[in-house]
Amino acid sequence: MIIETLTWGTLDITEEQIYHFPKGVPGFEEDIDFALITVEDGPFCYLQSLQNKSISFLLSDPFVFYPTYEFELPQADKEELGIIDDVNIRCMVTIKEELEHSTVNLLAPIVLNPNTRSGKQVVLHNSNYQTRHSLWNAPHDHFEKGGE
């Protein structure tokens, strides 16, 4: 499938890259279908709206930066997404002009079911996580700021 994006121009994506968000993403409820575009050799990917070429979100594997990150996914969300075993967790990243001030949102992870290709941004209630955890000052061992 060929899609148009503001950032990368025309992309050819597969059906396996498309995730359906029945309720959209908070603030972007009209955008319900997204392509998950991976970035090679790194912990980042993009969630590109199929409805609006100018809407995309930078995501990261939170466990790369915060290996002890954990939460209990509410049963209602598991049922809504049809999650039995397989689940992928990604978190939104905000890049700042000064890269060392970039942040990751650990309070509202993106939960993806790779089997049904459905997704949802879940807000974790009763959590100590915040929407702006430092990306580069995270207690990680295997990913350096220089990308090596």
Rank of each mutant, 00 (worst) to 15 (best):
I37G: 06
I32T: 14
P114Q: 03
P22G: 13
P114I: 03
G82I: 11
I95W: 15
V123T: 08
N105Q: 07
F65C: 09
V64Q: 05
H125D: 12
V64P: 12
S118Y: 07
I110T: 07
D85C: 03
I18C: 02
F28K: 03
N126V: 01
E30L: 09
L107I: 03
G147C: 04
D33E: 12
H133W: 13
H20V: 08
T116I: 07
T38Y: 10
D61S: 08
Q51A: 06
L58Q: 04
Q17A: 13
E29I: 04
D141F: 08
K145H: 08
L99K: 14
L73W: 00
Y66W: 12
L59S: 02
N115G: 02
G24R: 09
V87T: 06
V93P: 01
G42Y: 14
D12Y: 02
L59D: 04
Q51W: 04
V39W: 10
L58P: 08
I84C: 07
K96Q: 14
L99E: 08
L112A: 07
H142L: 09
P139A: 05
W136L: 12
D33Y: 06
R132M: 02
I95Q: 15
P26I: 11
N105I: 01
E97M: 07
S102E: 11
K96N: 09
F44P: 14
V39L: 15
I18F: 06
E144I: 04
I18S: 05
E30M: 05
I89P: 05
T94R: 15
F143N: 06
T38N: 13
D77F: 04
C45T: 13
K145W: 10
P74K: 03
D85I: 07
T10G: 05
E79N: 12
S102R: 10
T103F: 02
T68M: 03
E98N: 09
G27E: 11
N88L: 13
I18N: 03
T14C: 08
E16T: 11
Y46N: 11
E15Y: 09
Y19Q: 10
G119L: 08
D12G: 09
L50D: 06
I55P: 00
I55C: 01
K53V: 02
H101L: 12
F143Q: 06
H133E: 15
L99P: 05
F44Q: 07
D41F: 11
N115R: 06
G119C: 01
K53M: 04
K78D: 00
D77P: 04
I84P: 02
P62T: 07
P62N: 09
Q130A: 14
L73F: 07
A76D: 00
V111P: 02
F63H: 15
F28E: 06
D61N: 13
C91I: 02
K23H: 14
K120D: 00
T68R: 13
S127P: 14
V25Y: 13
A108H: 01
D12I: 12
E100M: 11
Q121S: 04
L36N: 05
G9P: 10
S134G: 13
F28P: 00
S60Y: 01
H133R: 06
Q121I: 11
I13A: 07
V87N: 00
G42S: 15
D141I: 10
